[in-house]
Amino acid sequence: MSAIIILLVVSISVASLFLFAFLWSVKSGQYDDELSPPLRMLFDDKPKESTSTKQ
């Protein structure tokens, strides 16, 4: 029986963790702009000198 109670506490706390993660992600504005972050990660930051060496 005590095992069930421990499991109960664990499962609800894990679920609450996800709930707070979700609420935090909404609050921090991660859903405000869903277009630019996936594009942003594709840009390579190159040093200023290496221009027009592409293709």
Binding site: L8, S11, A15, F18, F22, L23, V26, K27, Y31
Partner: peptide
Amino acid sequence: KFNKALIYPLGVAGFCFANIMLL
């Protein structure tokens, strides 16, 4: 413009609903 007013209640309701179902 982004309407957060409904998103928070929705997240909370989903969490509570799923756990209550389980219990």
